[in-house]
Computed example of a mutant assay.
Amino acid sequence: MQTQRNTVEGIIARQRLNAIFKELFRKSIHICSSFVPLFLGFAYWPVIALLILAIVVYTISELLRAKGINIPLISKITEIAARKRDENRFVLGPVTLACGILIAALLLPLDCARVGIFALAFGDGLASLMGKLFGKITIPGAHGKTAAGSLTCFFAVFISTFCCCGNCLVSLITALCAMFIEVLPLSDFDNLIIPPVIGLIYSGLI
């Protein structure tokens, strides 16, 4: 009986470690998107073209993967990063991530797009990771979102926005808006919404 209990506990521990690894891998991609504004400042249209190309190539890769045809590297990265809910289906997260950044970059001035992209990269990226690691208190009606994750989102966006504008009030309002959006049960569509909406709110505040 004790051996069986130890076996079950071992399986649960391995599953938890695997989930944390996947979250860490996935959110490292989120955080790496913070470099996009820097590249946009040096080569705007080439970066826009690369984002569009990435969306097209990834979409084709996922459609082929659904038919059992794996694309080297791309399919492997998707497999490693995919959540349990994404198994045997089109993994939408990378598409919404790139589209959210693309929309912000095309519609907003670079300084405003930068704040929106940072909100996605640091706010949403770190929120999910901290929620997995330290989240004990869940937020009612938020589909498993945790207080730890939401607070992490708030502070990450506040700091990144303050680094961009040096204004505490603007940073506070921007961070509160980002935290509210992050709490909403939007699944992967928060990637699509956060950069343009937060960038637009920031542009209105300044």
Rank of each mutant, 00 (worst) to 15 (best):
S128Q: 04
S33T: 12
R114S: 08
V115N: 02
F158H: 01
K76F: 14
N70M: 15
C168E: 15
L64M: 15
R14K: 15
T152C: 06
I193V: 14
R85P: 06
A105Y: 00
G100K: 01
Y58D: 09
E182H: 04
A105M: 02
F180L: 15
G141H: 05
S33N: 08
G100D: 05
A13Y: 11
I117N: 00
L151R: 03
I20Q: 09
E9T: 07
M1C: 10
G204H: 09
L73Q: 11
T152V: 04
R83M: 09
E62I: 04
A156D: 08
R26Y: 05
I137K: 13
N70A: 15
T152A: 02
V91K: 05
G123L: 06
V47A: 07
I71T: 13
I173Y: 05
T161R: 02
I194E: 01
V170M: 11
L51G: 04
L102M: 05
C164R: 09
T152H: 02
L50N: 00
C165Y: 12
L151S: 01
I29P: 06
I117V: 11
F25Q: 08
G204L: 12
C177I: 06
Q15R: 14
V47W: 04
Q2I: 13
L106H: 10
L129F: 10
L192V: 09
F158G: 01
F162E: 07
L24D: 01
R14F: 13
A104Y: 03
T59G: 11
L133M: 13
I173N: 05
F155C: 09
G116H: 02
V36A: 07
R5Y: 12
C99H: 08
R65K: 15
V56Q: 08
F134P: 00
I29H: 06
I80Q: 12
I11L: 14
N167C: 10
L107V: 10
A127I: 00
F35G: 08
P195N: 06
L92P: 01
L129Q: 04
T152Y: 01
V8S: 14
F39Q: 12
A43F: 15
L50C: 10
I60K: 11
A82V: 03
V95D: 06
C99E: 13
L102I: 04
I12F: 10
I194H: 00
G125P: 05
F154K: 03
F118C: 04
A147V: 14
G131V: 00
L205A: 03
M1I: 12
F25S: 14
I173C: 06
L40W: 01
E62K: 02
A148T: 11
P195V: 02
E87T: 09
V197Y: 02
G135F: 00
I80S: 09
G149H: 02
R83P: 05
L107A: 10
L24H: 04
R65H: 14
I12C: 08
I201S: 05
I69F: 11
T138K: 11
L126S: 11
T161F: 00
F155Q: 02
D86N: 07
L73M: 14
L200E: 09
A81M: 13
V115A: 09
V197A: 09
V183P: 01
G131E: 03
F180D: 10
I137H: 10
V36C: 07
P46I: 03
S75K: 02
E87Q: 14
I137G: 03
G204R: 05
F180W: 15
I74H: 08
I181L: 12
L73G: 07
P72M: 07
Y202V: 06
F162C: 06
C99P: 04
A148I: 06
I137L: 12
I137Y: 09
I201Y: 05
R5L: 14
